[in-house]
Simulated assay, not measured.
Amino acid sequence: MRKRGFVLLWLAGIALATLGLRACTAGIAQQNLNGIGEVTSVVDGARPGEVVVHTHTRGYARDLAWVVTDDGNVTSMEGDGAEAPGGPQAQGCAGDACYRAAGDALRVEGSGDGGRTWATAWQVTGPAYENLVRTYPKLGDPAEHLASRSVVVHTVAGGHVVYVANGRDGLLRRDPGGAWRRIGSPDSGEGCCFLDPVPRLATDPPPPDPAPYVAGFVALGVLAAGAVASARRRSWHPLALVAVAALAALGGCVAYLGAGMPDVGMFPGLMYGAPLVLGALAGGAVLAAAFVRRAAPARPSGADVDVPGPEAGLARLGGGEGGGGPA
């Protein structure tokens, strides 16, 4: 009974830890999105090849201005005074290539004839846009906080680059080859600056996800540890086998959550998730082996039992055969 209670206690503890980890993972992801700065505008930098990005973040005493280069790197958070006069513009051109922000939607229009005719160059609409509205916490009016507001267009080697302020969705960048990419919002940390990633659009192809493979590997590792222990100890107790299977499932869940840990600030989720995966594998294997009891030695049947007779008892009392009894 004590063995069963030990097994159930361990399994219940691991299950509660898994549920807590799941809630923690979801909370970190929401907190990350809640703390991302809203890109309110982009402005030409005072120096060539630079764009000044203005952001607003809840809880900050003041708005911040960041310097982003034409190649997409955030280089400084000292953008105040580093911008060209004129303020944010809803339209910008590089020769005959012009772009303008919609102002009330995630949409950028482009023109190849200097602005005489326009067509949609990039946009997020329909279910993909609605999913973004649901994803960003405390968004407010989407037409104001999830919309393309201002643009900067720079001529570079091989073509031109475009930066668009997309509110809570951060920065949108068009590279010289014509590819548009949502690159996120500037943020600070060790090493100065980086870009917070944006949520994946519902229309984007799903990225490679190693979490199911990691979970399967850990679950198989725990099962293998239990099977080896059972084979070596010649013990196949049903309770132990059920406990090992449950432990493998819980270890796989912990590994799945660890492999999918979100980033925390500039630190990658792998930094936090890798110890969880290794702990699930090593701890699960140790516990699986501990749950398997060594088989009790077989008791001889009644027909094979030697029942000592009175002579044996007398011999023991007398010290054995010829064992120096009284003269």
Rank of each mutant, 00 (worst) to 15 (best):
A298N: 01
L172D: 03
D263L: 00
G79S: 09
A249F: 13
G221C: 04
V68E: 01
V286N: 00
G318I: 06
Q123P: 03
S188W: 00
M266D: 10
G49A: 08
G95S: 08
R316S: 12
V218L: 07
R299H: 01
V124H: 06
G279Q: 10
A165G: 06
G177H: 09
P176G: 01
S230K: 09
A289G: 15
G86A: 09
G279S: 15
W10R: 02
P275W: 11
L270S: 14
A288G: 06
A46P: 00
A303Y: 08
D196T: 11
V277T: 04
R100P: 01
V222K: 08
G309H: 09
P310W: 13
F267P: 00
D209L: 08
A274D: 10
S230W: 07
A97K: 11
S235E: 06
G112E: 12
V151K: 06
T135Y: 05
F194P: 03
G216I: 04
V162D: 02
L172M: 11
A179Q: 14
K3P: 01
V124I: 15
A296L: 13
V254Q: 15
V222W: 04
V164Q: 02
A179V: 15
L139P: 10
A298S: 13
A227K: 02
E321H: 13
A248R: 05
G178E: 09
A246G: 15
A245M: 07
P85G: 08
R200S: 12
G258E: 06
V39M: 03
D169F: 13
L19I: 02
R107T: 14
L241D: 03
N131P: 03
A227P: 10
T18S: 12
G92N: 04
E144K: 14
R181H: 14
V43R: 11
V74I: 02
W118E: 07
D141R: 14
L287Y: 05
T203V: 11
V67T: 08
D306Y: 15
P275F: 10
C24I: 00
A231S: 12
A46F: 01
T155V: 08
G251P: 00
D196V: 11
E50F: 07
P238H: 08
G35H: 09
T55D: 06
Y163P: 03
V108D: 01
V152W: 03
T18L: 12
Y256G: 07
T75W: 00
G59R: 03
A274P: 02
V222D: 05
D175N: 15
Y163N: 04
A259Y: 03
A94Q: 02
D306K: 07
V51Q: 02
V156T: 13
G140E: 07
L146V: 09
K138G: 06
G189A: 14
F6N: 10
A46M: 03
K3L: 11
A94H: 04
P48G: 03
A94L: 05
G260V: 01
L287W: 09
G115P: 10
G309R: 09
P205C: 00
S185D: 07
C24R: 14
I14V: 15
V161Q: 09
